[in-house]
Simulated assay, not measured.
Amino acid sequence: MPHIPTGRDTGCPFDPTAEMTALRERDPLVRLAFPDGHVGWLATGYETVRAVFADSRFSSRYELMHYPFADIGELPPAPAGDMTGMDAPEHTRFRKLLMGKFTVRRMRELTARVEEITAEQLDAMAQADGPVDLVEAFAQPIPALMICELLGVPSTDRDFFQRCALQLTSIVSDQQAQYEAMTALGDYMHKLVLAKRAEPTDDLLGDLTSSDLTDEELTGVGSFLLGAGLETTANMLALGTYALLRHPDQFAALRDDPALAPQAVEELMRYLTITHTGAKTALEDVELNGKLIKAGETVVLSMETANRDPLRFPDPDTLDLHRKATGHVGFGHGIHQCLGQQLARVEMQVALPALLTRFPTLRLAAPEEEIPLRTNQTIFGVHSLPVTWDEV
């Protein structure tokens, strides 16, 4: 009975491990031994992963989960406002309230601001004397400034939030460190909520002060959105650039045709799948793929292998920006599909082609084997990405 492998393939930082791929090819739903002694399941096939995501008989509540990477004991219930750890109808209440804030139309209206922020970061990069770290100079500031503006958080505090988010997404941090990061984030957000209650502002948190959310719930929603908005897009921008640098033909395709950006972003989301896994716990006995998943058993969902399933995506291990990668599970699936996916799309569709257009000779400034990968985080990426370019 397998334990869940972690990390990526040693031959290519973008590929699932050979063990995970072999598991999918042998059987897309297998028994899995958890570090705490629980025996649950591992889903690796595209159709199987989507089926579990979409089935209301599986719960997302933390307190019902068994953690697949380490024995950390019983997980507490999700804090108020943390939609990831909620089921319907509680989840539905929050999602309905927030969906109108993240519509495609509203996110497109933010495009001009994303373009301004991107141009500012590129200007600063151009003034650098020597190589720059793309993570620090480009990938982190763009989504950080956008989510801070959207929520009404001072941009000067973004470094604090990034440190908290890094701690919360680590698979090696002890519970005390994660608790301290969560507490610090919650304390700050609570003070911000009280300030906006007293004097509402023209931003998402300010708008939500007129809803029926309590201070505790609004604090939780703000912390949840801030953490999600910082880490995911930042890592997609950095890792996406790294992938393009390792595939010069695809780099050239996007550089020479920026209109390819929407399609390119979907393919990068599929190919990279920076959120490796999800998890659901059966609320009742469920038959799936001819097997009985019993109530209380946790199913780990390997989104990275699902997005590389050849039964859904032909030649899945090839990065092809001309591929129509619709239907990928890079943003999840079902009622918990990423709430901010449209904002993430806008940011990536603007930032990536702008970077390649501004620096058409962009290249790594360090050997590939020295690029530090985030193999100890639940959100995959690079800790830093040194790059340089030729003056044009």
Rank of each mutant, 00 (worst) to 15 (best):
C164G: 08
M348R: 07
V52R: 02
D320V: 13
T318N: 15
R358W: 02
A181V: 08
T92M: 06
R61I: 04
L244F: 10
P314Y: 12
I147G: 06
V329D: 13
T241H: 14
E115K: 06
L339I: 11
V52W: 02
A253F: 06
L356D: 07
S60F: 08
A128N: 04
T92H: 11
R158A: 15
Y271S: 07
L272I: 06
A80S: 09
M107G: 01
M125C: 12
A366V: 15
P68W: 00
P5F: 00
T275P: 01
F161V: 12
E266K: 04
Q337W: 03
A22W: 12
T305V: 07
C164M: 14
H66E: 00
V114P: 06
H190M: 08
D129F: 02
E287H: 13
D320K: 11
A252N: 13
A344I: 08
A128C: 10
Y46N: 13
R8L: 05
M107V: 01
D55M: 03
V300L: 07
G85C: 07
S223P: 07
R93S: 01
L301W: 06
T92C: 02
L205F: 02
V132N: 05
A264Q: 04
W41H: 09
G37Y: 01
A252G: 00
T118A: 12
V265A: 01
Q377C: 10
D71R: 00
Y242Q: 10
F14L: 09
H190G: 05
A177N: 06
D390G: 11
D285H: 04
E347K: 03
A112L: 09
L204N: 13
D203Q: 13
R108I: 02
Q377N: 15
C12G: 04
L260R: 15
R24M: 14
P16M: 02
A112V: 07
P141C: 13
L356S: 12
E370S: 12
S60T: 10
D309G: 02
E391W: 02
A18W: 01
R50Q: 05
Q263P: 04
M146P: 02
D315M: 12
G220R: 04
L145C: 07
V114F: 04
L194V: 10
L110D: 05
E90L: 11
L150Q: 14
G152R: 06
V299D: 12
S56D: 10
C338P: 03
E25T: 09
A253D: 05
H336S: 03
Y242N: 08
L268H: 06
T273K: 01
G240M: 07
C164R: 11
D187H: 03
E267P: 04
M189D: 06
M83K: 02
A366W: 12
D133K: 14
T275Y: 00
T156V: 11
F102S: 05
E47P: 08
L288C: 12
A43C: 03
A351H: 05
D123Q: 14
T156C: 11
